[in-house]
């Protein structure tokens, strides 16, 4: 059974349903699955729960799914760059569950690794820990956080092969490897599909077992904060 698809729409065929949960890779606009987000917007799937560190900007990234109110709930660590998000949140149209960034990453990692929960010191004594189990280990208090398993993971890698083996480029890696493991189905969009055997086998970041579908797409790679020094 081949894993390679023509484009985002065909890769998503038969997978989307209203009310589903999606893990989306990316940090800010860096390393986001641009084509899959656009295709989910085109498909019009509703009442989505999306776990992603950020929520994009108004007209790019996950912000596109907010335009037609497709998202019911976000699980994120920081959503400060998106005005549309704030409007819908304040109007009660959008729910937000804030997770500390490292806790979100570990929840996805744990969920993908078959670990239903873990204890962390992050957030102890803050409102993040309210209502959650606390436990003392060696005199220090930790809070129980749950692993996250999502119906679908949408990720972006640099190069991939027909086996689903992936490599990421620089900081565009971010949450993509964790999301890849946390999806019941994982779809990867890559800048380039290369022949099986041509990736450095010792430098594959995500082994193909985690990836069910893969396609090559074009990427705008919008920059959020263009900062430079004089040449």
């Amino acid at each position: 059974m081949g894993k390679v698809y023509q484009d985002a729409a065909s890769a998503l065929d038969g997978i989307l349903f209203d009310g589903m949960s999606i893990a989306a890779g990316g940090f800010g606009l860096c390393g986001i699955p641009e084509n899959l987000i656009q295709a989910i917007k085109d498909a019009g799937t509703k009442r989505l729960t999306v776990a992603s560190n950020n929520a994009g900007v108004d007209d790019f990234g996950l912000g596109l799914l907010l335009q037609d109110k497709q998202v019911k709930k976000m699980i994120s660590s920081y959503v400060g760059e998106n005005d549309l998000f704030m409007q819908q949140y304040l109007a009660g149209q959008l729910e937000i569950e804030f997770n500390p960034q490292g806790t979100l990453a570990e929840r996805l990692r744990a969920g993908g690794a078959g670990i239903p929960g873990f204890y962390t010191a992050t957030g102890v004594g803050t409102e993040i820990a309210e209502g959650k189990e606390l436990k003392e280990f060696d005199g220090k208090t930790y809070v129980l956080e749950r692993g996250l398993k999502m119906d679908l993971a949408i990720i972006k890698a640099w190069k991939g092969d027909a086996q689903g083996n992936l490599t990421y480029r620089r900081t565009a890696m971010n949450f993509n490897p964790e999301c890849a493991t946390a999806g019941k189905v994982t779809i990867a969009e890559v800048e380039e599909i290369v022949p099986v055997g041509s990736l450095d086998k010792m430098a594959i970041h995500t082994p193909g077992v985690y990836v069910q579908r893969i396609f090559q797409g074009a990427h705008e790679k919008r920059i959020e904060q263009r900062t430079t020094r004089a040449a």
Binding site: C30, R169, K221, R222, Q225, T227
Partner: peptide, 22 residues
């Protein structure tokens, strides 16, 4: 440090989402 105009790489940012270098 921050990149020169020629060094800008959208795949290379810091936690403040600013372009940086390796």
């Amino acid at each position: 440090p921050f990149p020169t105009e020629d060094e800008i790489d959208p795949d290379l940012i810091n936690a403040g989402k600013q372009t940086v270098t390796e």
